[in-house]
């Protein structure tokens, strides 16, 4: 088994996929850092200050004014109201919700890449793990060895898990190093609030917890990693089922993008919450944003993702061990 994993790792490294992914992440982080920097500059110019309390107070008033418009949809209104209450809570307790620095940038980067960007990067590796063996004809060489088929697949899956862990780590390290050049490398100890409960009546702040940013980040990383793992497993399954890599990737891509679109409009279609792709934004629960569909909670999303994961695992292994290879 150990040998098999080593062998798979070697193939992974030889393909240089991780390097390509690191490059993509690096370029995007540079872009985001620049965009964020511009945003901060613009805000400062507009208000003539970089005092965060003034900026936050101004945002609160601006949001209040947007709420007074009667052309808002109900969900949008609720979202604005919750973000308003959160901001007010931060302000009342004198905590800067976005302490400038690389760790805050990392947090924002993670929260925004959890449902599309990181899964896409994972797909780059996962979607041809098995199907490429078919297209290159190496699958026969692999299966003629005196090793059980499930062991072969298992070694591939374990390699995938390690690769996903590495991708998440690369995203974290690169976003920290690159954004730090502009925003500075401090701010690990900055306080952040979590545990806001979104209820029908608005925001419940009785369970609010105060965390250091580094602890919060580690939790965020854990959630991002879990999402990446589930998406990776699903594309792994497709790679087993469909011999064409491009087709497998297309299916997965369609699912991910439909998830991003669905989350914006499914609030009235309740059973859509059992789709894996509307459950990807786990970090939103930590932060206290309202879920896309009423009744979704962290444990619900985790459970849904876990079931999809387990189903994908079962299908992959059953199909791969039974499949005729010719």
């Amino acid at each position: 088994m150990n040998k098999l994993i080593q062998n798979e790792m070697m193939k992974l490294i030889a393909k240089k996929r991780l390097v390509v992914i690191a490059l993509i992440i690096g370029v995007l982080v540079v872009l985001f850092t620049y965009a964020q920097y511009k945003e901060v500059q613009r805000e400062r110019e507009k208000l003539g200050t970089n005092d965060w309390r003034t900026i936050l107070q101004q945002q609160i008033v601006d949001t209040t004014n947007r709420l007074s418009s009667n052309r808002l949809s109900d969900e949008w209104r609720q979202q604005l109201q919750i973000s308003l209450q959160q901001k007010q809570y931060y302000l009342d307790h004198d905590i800067n919700p976005a302490e400038p620095g690389a760790p805050t940038f990392m947090r924002i980067f993670l929260e925004n890449s959890i449902d599309l960007f990181i899964p896409l990067m994972v797909m780059v590796i996962a979607s041809d793990l098995v199907s490429s063996e078919h297209s290159m004809g190496t699958v026969k060489l692999l299966l003629t060895r005196p090793v059980k088929r499930w062991k072969v697949l298992m070694s591939k899956y374990i390699t995938l898990c390690l690769a996903i862990s590495l991708i998440v780590a690369i995203a974290g390290i690169l976003s920290f190093l690159i954004s730090g050049v502009v925003f500075g490398y401090k701010g690990w100890e900055a306080p952040i609030l979590t545990g806001f409960n979104v209820t029908d009546t608005g925001l419940n702040t009785t369970d609010v917890k105060l965390l250091s940013l580094w602890k919060f980040l580690l939790m965020d990383f854990g959630l991002v990693w879990f999402v990446a793992l589930v998406v990776g497993t699903l594309s792994f399954m497709l790679s087993v089922l469909i011999n064409s890599t491009a087709a497998g990737m297309g299916v997965m891509l369609a699912a991910l993008i439909s998830g991003a679109i669905l989350s914006n409009m499914v609030s009235s279609w309740e059973s859509a919450k059992y789709f894996f792709m509307v459950n990807l934004r786990l970090t939103d629960y930590m932060q206290g944003s309202p879920p896309p569909i009423e009744g979704m909670t962290l444990s619900f999303s985790l459970l849904v993702l876990f079931i999809w994961w387990a189903a994908a695992m079962a299908v992959s292994f059953i199909v791969f061990t039974k499949k005729d290879v010719y």
Binding site: H93, D94, T206, L218, M219, D220, G222, W225, Y285, S299
Partner: peptide, 23 residues
């Protein structure tokens, strides 16, 4: 792998069992 797994466990644990601590 182990680090992120720990982070995930911590996130879930903290989300459900963490003591409220007002600032």
């Amino acid at each position: 792998f182990l680090l992120w797994l720990g982070g995930l466990g911590w996130a879930v644990g903290n989300y459900y069992a963490g003591k409220p601590e007002s600032p």
